[in-house]
Design a binder for these strands. Sequence first.
DNA 1: ATGGTGACGTCGG
DNA 2: GCCGACGCCACCA
Length: 111
Amino acid sequence: MAKQYSFFEDVYEVVKLIPKGRATSYGLIANYLGTKLSARMVGWAMNAAHGLPDVPAHRVVNREGLLTGKVHFGSPSRMQELLEAEGLTVVEDKIQHFKEIVWDPMKELEN
DNA sequence: ATGGTGACGTCGG
DNA sequence: GCCGACGCCACCA
């Protein structure tokens, strides 16, 4: 029998595909998954996703590019350092030029 | 089975 | 332009 992929599984797949130096928002992922009306679920999925090494939850931020979930990394500065290590600029827990580096799964994976 | 929660997003005033 | 409230759906107790 096919494994019942939960909503989380789909989120993992998308987050794993986020290239280095790029970031995406909960809304974009939610939109890609079809639950665009409830981006909260994406954040919820991330809560479990950040426990997986293959899921770069630090590349997922809110629509403003703000590191809203930094607190869930165990260390508030952990998320920022991870992003900076990938070449992103983070100031005041906010990704600079977020719209320029945003990775939209709907556009990147449209093929 | 029901209720509450939640790393967001959008609308209204 | 800023602030407040609602909605949304899946997981946990």
